[in-house]
Nucleic acid binder design. Structure first.
Ligand SMILES: NC(=O)c1ccc[n+]([C@@H]2O[C@H](COP(=O)([O-])OP(=O)(O)OC[C@H]3O[C@@H](n4cnc5c(N)ncnc54)[C@H](O)[C@@H]3O)[C@@H](O)[C@H]2O)c1
Ligand SMILES: NC(=O)c1ccc[n+]([C@@H]2O[C@H](COP(=O)([O-])OP(=O)(O)OC[C@H]3O[C@@H](n4cnc5c(N)ncnc54)[C@H](O)[C@@H]3O)[C@@H](O)[C@H]2O)c1
Lengths: 225, 225
DNA sequence: AATGCCATGTGAAATGGTTCACAAAACAGT
DNA sequence: ACTGTTTTGTGAACCATTTCACATGGCATT
């Protein structure tokens, strides 16, 4: 009889909520670092992001043992570890399609760059916008999308075009081999199984607030984001 | 012994996910209506939003019986019913604080109005912006926030200010009696228990995509939003 | 009026996520 | 070296959500 190893190739499936919370821990640790904390307990980390200490420890335990019993977690080390888990300890090459209201706001946003998401390409179909300069980036013609996405080695695309054309653009983005898309259009897009698609849906949050108001929801924690 | 009534004052707690899916059903039904569908099955509704038929039926059953066995759900009727559940069968008076990059984009967005969220007040602390006109609304001085929120009967506030001042603004919004806040700043804000706060966190979605890419997540459904 | 068919509505089962509770580990102080 | 204190790491218990499966009800057609 074989002696069982401690973790026999166990395929752990990490939940979406856990990943979202890692983002929160990362944010809190960044702040703690600025405040010159050396270590932090699960209790303090939980307090800062309105979670429970047990939740914090459980989440982290999926990825390893980063703390010291009796002391807590080393702030800088844990922050780096989470960055590595999330894959933000590197730079991602990002393109943005649709330089309209929301698109322009996103290009101007410096925090994304700081977190490793570097917008290096812009696309639009409006002749007045093509060729114009946004934060040092020249807007490309949407007709060259596939070719230029490949040439620029784009790994992630942000979609900020009208809902009516979003599916058409996505199809071309997929053709260019891009595997990750963040979509702002309020529409359910079809992508192949090997392409990751996330939707940013602001109406959904407004509608949740509306629901809470009319139903006098008892407020435990309405959101963790 | 009392004969038990069928639903003896049962306090049903509706989950956050169910409410989010109601938003999706609403969106799908709006489209179905435009396409002149009279009725729709849970199967078709599920297909359009990448959910399961059982999920659709279960979600709706929390609020009543809206369908006809063998036929499906009446599109227009169900749409109205969901609007009523979500509280978007009316107009909400909304103020937006911080008329910067993202704030300007939100003011220009006509879809919110169509869904009953009517932005009627803008606030900023930048002298160059105060008094200026955005889509017919004059930007007010942040110093008059509490007073003007009350006067205008604002029920919901969208926060698009820098993270550093967000808590300060929220405190004043709460003082003005506003019970619902949608926050875009990447910071965990403190509000009293009777105030509903939701956060729109774009970094979180980008980081999820990053995690998916570096971990080659098996793709079932990465997002439902 | 009777039959066949279809899709809802819903308990019950299964799955997944969160909280509990405590042994184990590390440090500090004596 | 020993004792007390603190906080981690983690199975197990608990709770919530999703999926299953089927009885039920209604329509259509004959
Ligand atoms: N503005 C907001 O606050 C907001 C909020 C939530 C969601 N959204 C969604 O984000 C998307 C963009 O909204 P917006 O307000 O920025 O709209 P917008 O009209 O200001 O911007 C859309 C941009 O896409 C470009 N475009 C149109 N067709 C194109 C094509 N075929 N190829 C390339 N570019 C094309 C337009 O030229 C324009 O620059 C929409 O789907 C909208 O529903 C916007
Ligand atoms: N731009 C984006 O794409 C983006 C994306 C995600 C999150 N955010 C967040 O949204 C918020 C706004 O971002 P932005 O890019 O629009 O920044 P911005 O600097 O363009 O806009 C901020 C606005 O708030 C105003 N403001 C500053 N202090 C104020 C005060 N005390 N009272 C009233 N108004 C005040 C400024 O005058 C400015 O008009 C930030 O918290 C940012 O982190 C922005």
């Amino acid at each position: 009889m074989a002696i069982p190893t401690k973790k026999p190739d166990k395929k752990r499936r990490i939940s979406e909520s856990t990943i979202h919370r890692l983002s929160l821990y990362y944010r809190a640790l960044t702040l703690l670092e600025k405040e010159n904390y050396e270590t932090v307990s699960s209790k303090e980390l939980a307090r800062r992001e309105k979670l429970t200490p047990a939740q914090v420890r459980k989440d982290l335990s999926f990825f390893g043992s980063f703390g010291t019993r009796g002391l807590g977690y080393p702030v800088n080390e844990l922050k780096n570890k989470i960055a590595s888990i999330l894959g933000i300890d590197r730079t991602w090459r990002v393109a943005l399609v649709g330089v309209g209201n929301i698109g322009s706001a996103l290009v101007s946003y410096k925090e994304f760059m700081k977190q490793g998401f570097q917008i290096v390409k812009l696309f639009d179909n409006d002749q007045r916008k093509i060729g114009s300069n946004h934060k040092g980036i020249i807007v490309s013609d949407i007709n060259n999308l596939e070719k230029e996405l490949k040439e620029a080695g784009i790994e992630l695309v942000i979609l900020a075009v009208p809902a009516t054309v979003a599916q058409y653009i996505v199809d071309n983005v997929v053709k260019a081999g891009v595997k990750a898309i963040l979509n702002f259009a309020p529409v359910n897009l079809r992508v192949p199984d090997d392409v990751y698609l996330r939707n940013e849906n602001m109406s959904m949050e407004l509608e949740y607030l509306s629901f809470a108001l009319v139903n006098n929801l008892s407020q435990k924690r309405v959101n963790e984001g």
